[in-house]
Nucleic acid binder design. Sequence first.
DNA 1: CTGAAAGCGCTAACAC
DNA 2: GTGTTAGCGCTTTCAG
Lengths: 338, 338
Amino acid sequence: MANATTPAVRLKDIARDLNVSVMTVSKVVRGCADVGAETRSRVLARIKELNYQPNWVARSLAARRTFMIGLIVPDLMHSFFAEIAKGVSATLRPLGYDVVICNSEEDGAVESSEVDRLLARQVDGLLIASAQAPASLELFERIEARGVPYVLLDRRFAGANASYVGADDEAIGRLATRHLIERGCRQIAHIAGPPLTPGVGRLKGYQDALAEAGLAVSDCSVVQATDDESGYLAARRLLGLEPRPDAIFGYNDPTAAGALKAILEAGIAIPQEIKVIGVGNVHYSDLLRVPLSTIDQSSTAIGRQAADMLVKSIGSKRKRPATTVLIDPILIPRESTR
Amino acid sequence: MANATTPAVRLKDIARDLNVSVMTVSKVVRGCADVGAETRSRVLARIKELNYQPNWVARSLAARRTFMIGLIVPDLMHSFFAEIAKGVSATLRPLGYDVVICNSEEDGAVESSEVDRLLARQVDGLLIASAQAPASLELFERIEARGVPYVLLDRRFAGANASYVGADDEAIGRLATRHLIERGCRQIAHIAGPPLTPGVGRLKGYQDALAEAGLAVSDCSVVQATDDESGYLAARRLLGLEPRPDAIFGYNDPTAAGALKAILEAGIAIPQEIKVIGVGNVHYSDLLRVPLSTIDQSSTAIGRQAADMLVKSIGSKRKRPATTVLIDPILIPRESTR
DNA sequence: CTGAAAGCGCTAACAC
DNA sequence: GTGTTAGCGCTTTCAG
């Protein structure tokens, strides 16, 4: 009968079977060198036979180390974070870590409680794309008090004595805006993101690029949005401006895609009359009504880097100085700015 | 100094401080009724004071229960699975479970080793959208032998004595095909998915709908693809057929979006000359060059249902009979089949 | 090279 | 109501 439930093999069982101590078996399992060659192979054989799998809960308790890493993102549906998650897992898995992914729904309080749960589960480290309010450091202080290493992703918190990995948002803003200027645009509007470091940085880069080109920076050319729907509405407002913008730089690809829709609906030609650029290089960008020019953020690289840094600070006993890594953006020109 | 690392409060510490036994504190923490009102409030106060957080590793070892659930999907970047993950988390979190999400990269061997890791971590249950070869049940037998409840998602395995939750794929195929027939199409081609139950079911539904309408089912009108790129190539082949199809039913939205691109590139009008429909209602479907008609699979509902069923079978001591839940598809007509 | 002792932090089961 | 006795399955430390 395939229906019998086997009660899980333990070190003890193997030790008994072979007339050796639990310790010896444990050492073999962990690959310690100080075990006789013959004993080792006998143990190994039995392990294979019984298909022994160490109990990680017990192991974690005894070793005070879980080999679990918590990753907290504001939205898994957003492909940017899904890609980061992929990069993180791909880096950590081979090193023996499991990754527990949590979704904060862009809510600081939810994030806070997720962090507590992960700490209660004794994760060895934390990777956080935080939804905390920009000035609130309380959560980070709590983590630091526990002595658990963590790395911040995507969103930066100046006061949070931790390492950070993210895109170079000001560079993104400059790159996008300069590209539009080079294409001959002079009335460049911006759909800005929420007031977190990515949005703020991209806005600053946009303003800097305009200033450097001697173009006016007008407040009314900047409206805020987060996704395709709000981007659509934002673009409709921008289209009503006098003079009408000849370019729109969207905070991210969804807002830019929403803008695309609004512009086409208004019967305005892209890229002839208005050019559009986004950020993120989401997978469907070139399937849109007009393939969307965008800035690639190398999300996978962000995940990889952050995971690397975390592992290093888990490894070193003493707390290492916080590092900041900014990933360079890459321009992906397509039809929408031709 | 905010830099001091506090060594984590334990039950023992609270017990000592209050001159009660560890057990009493443990009972208060878990909300057991049999504790004196005054003792309870003293304990509670101290817990708050010290911000005590139970150590879940220790708790799990002692209680033989981790309150962790493993979720294995073939691709987190695919929004269908990301949504499922969301539905699963949203259901399980409030019940006190944490979800460990794993990516099998559509590789059966990777999936196998992920399952082993999760079992080693003593998860209470497993949710699997499996990448196993259709006939291989070995992995599922292994799980059953361990006595860990699991629920299959999206992909069905007839022999795997487990519950299943997924879309009604045959209904999807019929719904899409009938819609095209109603719109007047007579040469309906199909971009079929890989030979897993969703692809096979949708193909069958397609064939049934054609037969029921008295239309010929021609083998050469069916080619296989999985994503936008292969869908693009598949569509190019279909466009070369004589007579040329007047409709293409894509296995999923990415293949259909790829078809859209190929058709437009060939200078053929959608929906006038060829109509296109996909499956999945991915978020960007209506931002495409031609907004794509599609079939919604209620991914979140699939996740929720599966999580519910899993929790129930974790709850019941005795193994409960395997259930199959088929979620009804919903037609979302858009421009591409107008 | 091998193993005994002690314990990780918590909970089950049962006495008091 | 409260506390005691035993572990959960493993690792650490250190003695043989």
